Amino acid sequence: MDFYDLKNAFFIGFVMSFMIGPVFFMLIKTSILKGARAAIAFDVGVILGDISFMLIAYYGSRSLLEKIKDDPRLFLVGGLILIVYGLITFLDKNNKKEGEAVPDVKIMESNNYLKLLFKGFALNFINVGVLATWLGVILVVGPTLDMNPTSIFWYFATILFGYALTDLGKILLAKQLKSKLTPLVIYRIKRGMGVLLIVFGALIMLKSFIPKEDIDNLLDKVKIEQID
């Protein structure tokens, strides 16, 4: 795996950190009301939830991943998952231009970091959409890395690093972010994330109809141009 792959993985982590949902708001509110350390403890729990989902998605789809490696047309599965989740995000009935406010999430009164960590884990783990997202990413990325366990590990470790680093920025800028999260901004972010997921899913599905040799040649060309 090269720098090109790691850069893509970091970008995925950055984008996923801005998926608007309960975890996003809870992280900001925890930082404002409890401080950066409490928010970091909460975020560690969230990341542990992501790791759990990644392991479930990886080992639960191992046989399918092996088939995709030999038959790229099965990329349709990963692309379809991202499109469906993107449509759900885009068409969410709560995505209203007016009247939607930042959820008033209750924060624990004492800074019990272990409880905050567990709360972050639980809040993330009950969101089935997170599992669907990781499943879609793994079904797409695994075969492109030739199912090499080491490459897959570092790819997803880089995603988590980008995710955690972006979350750290949100924690440090929590007060400024909260003031900018108007109903209209929230609406636009949600719709934008939905469109991104749909576009990525469509591109992945299109990829399944392109011969693997052509894809490899295109990627090699892009990498060479970036180096130059």
Rank of each mutant, 00 (worst) to 15 (best):
A132F: 04
A38H: 15
D216R: 13
K97L: 14
A101H: 13
I12V: 07
D2G: 10
F3D: 13
F156C: 03
G45A: 08
K207A: 01
K170S: 07
L197D: 01
G45Q: 10
Y4I: 09
N124D: 00
K170A: 09
I198M: 10
I210A: 06
K115N: 06
I12Q: 14
N112A: 04
I56Q: 07
T144I: 05
Y163A: 06
N148E: 02
G60W: 02
K207R: 14
D50M: 02
S61L: 08
W134A: 04
L87N: 05
Q226G: 14
I152G: 06
V128I: 07
F90N: 05
V195S: 06
V15F: 05
K223M: 15
P149Y: 06
A38K: 13
S208A: 05
K29D: 10
V15A: 10
D220K: 13
K221G: 14
L135R: 00
F3H: 05
D214G: 12
K212S: 13
R62S: 12
F10M: 04
L181H: 02
Q226F: 13
M26E: 09
L139K: 00
G86P: 07
L181R: 08
M26Y: 14
R37P: 09
T150E: 06
L131Q: 03
T166F: 08
K170T: 11
A101W: 09
K34S: 10
R73L: 02
I88Y: 15
I189P: 03
Y187P: 04
G162P: 04
D146M: 07
L6H: 06
I12F: 04
L55A: 14
F3R: 15
Y85K: 09
G49N: 05
D70S: 10
F14I: 11
M26R: 13
E100P: 02
N95H: 15
G78Q: 00
A157D: 04
A57G: 06
N217R: 15
A164T: 05
K212H: 08
V44C: 12
D43T: 15
K180T: 12
R188W: 11
T30N: 08
I159H: 11
F3Q: 13
I224W: 15
E100R: 09
G35N: 07
N124I: 01
G60V: 06
M19R: 15
I189T: 07
